[in-house]
């Protein structure tokens, strides 16, 4: 079962500016979470904390009951994997890319059946294995990044605006794959999104960040039909501090 991740009174300050203020949240095993909010609301920073690419200025994160600093970052990042907004593929074929996590961690194990399964989970078929990763479309690259992240057999998948660089069709298909990973594979998925429509499509829970704090935490169904807060309503009708959701 995936771990429970808890954030307790998290504050992050960067170059004297508060980025996250007093964020307390729990991500339950197998949950589907969408993090919404304007640009600069702290969404990406929140995700980077969860993958421990950054540490909070104050407050604590816990993986089940273990404080983050007591878990090896290398182990943590394999359990709580992250896919970035701009896909980064490494030199070589798609197969080389998928094997990268194994190559980082000896011994090297190149089971092709596993590669095929991961690729299919990310929405690509096995014919892609021999293709040059650098020559794929942005959407395909993003899927390769997702498949590669799945190679570490994570229990939690963090996605930072995974469709930001994609056209609407590719974006819709990627979101379907994300929903499948959550529902069929049982991964906890935490997805930062700029598009409320995607959060509505995947369902689950919504966390709205405003100015670095949690403004609303609600089920997607409730949030989109009857938001509980003024910030939630403003966000949905596009009047939240000049933001266009």
């Amino acid at each position: 079962m995936p771990p429970t991740i808890r954030l307790e009174q998290i504050c992050v300050t960067k170059r004297g500016r508060p980025v996250l203020t007093d964020v307390t949240l729990t991500f339950a095993p197998g949950g589907m979470y969408s993090i919404l909010g304007s640009s600069g609301a702290g969404k990406t920073t929140l995700l980077r904390l969860l993958n421990r690419l950054e540490d909070p200025t104050s407050g604590a994160l816990r993986l089940d009951d273990t404080p983050y600093p007591q878990v090896s970052p290398v182990v943590l990042r394999r359990r709580v994997a992250m896919v970035f907004q701009v896909p980064v593929v490494f030199t070589g074929s798609v197969q080389d890319n998928l094997l990268m996590p194994q190559r980082l961690q000896q011994p090297y194990d190149g089971d092709v059946a596993t590669l095929r399964r991961r690729l299919e989970l990310a929405g690509l078929d096995a014919t892609f294995l021999d293709r040059d990763a650098a020559r794929l479309s942005v959407g395909e690259k993003q899927r390769v990044c997702m498949a590669r992240a799945l190679m570490t057999e994570p229990e939690v998948l963090l996605l930072d605006e995974p469709t930001a660089a994609l056209d609407p069709t590719a974006a819709r298909r990627l979101i379907e794959s994300v929903a499948d990973l959550n529902r069929q594979v049982g991964l906890t998925v935490i997805m930062v999104s700029h598009q409320p429509g995607q959060a509505r499509a995947v369902g689950g829970q919504v966390v709205l960040l405003v100015g670095g704090g949690v403004a609303e935490r609600n089920s997607a169904a409730e949030f989109f039909s009857a938001p509980a807060t003024e910030n939630g309503r403003s966000y949905l009708n596009g009047t939240l501090r000049g933001d266009l959701p």
């Binding site: 993958n51 690419l53 290398v74 182990v75 990042r77 394999r78 994997a81 992250m82 970035f84 701009v86 980064v88 490494f90 990268m100 996590p101 980082l104 961690q105 990044c145 590669r148 992240a149 570490t152």
Partner: peptide, 16 residues
């Protein structure tokens, strides 16, 4: 930087 962080996120050590 993007590449370095992508590797870290896959469980690479800073040396790797």
């Amino acid at each position: 930087r993007d590449r370095v962080e992508a590797l870290l996120a896959l469980g690479a050590t800073s040396r790797q």
